[in-house]
């Protein structure tokens, strides 16, 4: 494989807890003090289906108001986590625009994406019905939908793993396409990937 380092961009409006999601994922449990200013702060090695990959996560939390910067961030990403808060409907709507922007900048309609409804621990404040979010994820082209709780570290790793799996599959497809177009392998791979996504959609 040509590349084992994948770039993931975490997007979403302010206050949806996406930084918390990233911090939870990146942070080692035994580190007492977290310093986000060093180069490796957002790198993490994970295993996806037996593959060892390094994820570099770009989470520009705090700079949501720098709308002009978004494309710069998006350019670097191979996969995107689109995060909203289940307690805020508007945070979900804002993702639609972001997704459009991603499609544009990537000039690709099948960019690996995961839709994430965060703050699932605040069920009593839920403003986004689960079917609603799920519907949107379907409309986006069968994008996996997860509900996470960064605070309780629920589904955090799963989200990143799923996205990473999508990137790997896509990577593999492109890799396979290049040498011989008639190859049969990719079909299967893709099919499997999609099925997995569907399964994951229901995971909470």
């Amino acid at each position: 494989m040509a590349q084992r380092e994948y770039h993931i961009v975490v997007l979403g409006s302010g206050g949806v807890g996406k930084s918390c999601l990233t911090a939870q994922f990146v942070q080692n449990v035994w580190i007492e003090s977290y310093d986000p200013t060093i180069e490796d702060s957002y790198r993490k090695a994970i295993d996806v289906d037996g593959r060892h990959v390094i994820l570099e996560i770009l989470d520009t939390a705090g700079t949501e108001q720098f709308t002009a910067m978004r494309e710069l961030y998006m350019k670097t990403g191979q996969g995107f986590l689109l995060v909203f808060s289940i307690t805020s409907m508007s945070s979900l709507y804002e993702l639609t625009e972001l997704r459009e922007q991603i499609r544009r900048i990537k000039e690709d309609d099948h960019v690996p994406l995961v839709l994430v409804g965060n703050k699932s621990d605040l069920e009593e404040d839920r403003a986004v019905p689960r079917p609603r979010a799920f519907k949107i994820s379907q409309d986006w082209g069968d994008v996996p939908y997860y509900e996470t709780s960064a605070r309780r570290r629920a589904n955090v790793d799963e989200v990143f793993t799923d996205l990473c799996r999508q990137i790997i599959n896509k990577d593999q497809r492109e890799y396979d396409r290049r040498p011989a177009k008639t190859k049969k392998g990719p079909k299967n791979r893709r099919g499997r990937g999609q099925r997995e996504h569907r399964i994951h959609c229901t995971i909470l």
């Binding site: 930084s19 918390c20 986000p36 702060s41 700079t63 720098f66």
Partner: peptide
């Protein structure tokens, strides 16, 4: 400024 804002966000969230 964005760098600082991101750093501050993660210091706040990660500690």
């Amino acid at each position: 400024v964005g760098i600082y804002l991101t750093d501050l966000t993660f210091v706040d969230v990660g500690n």
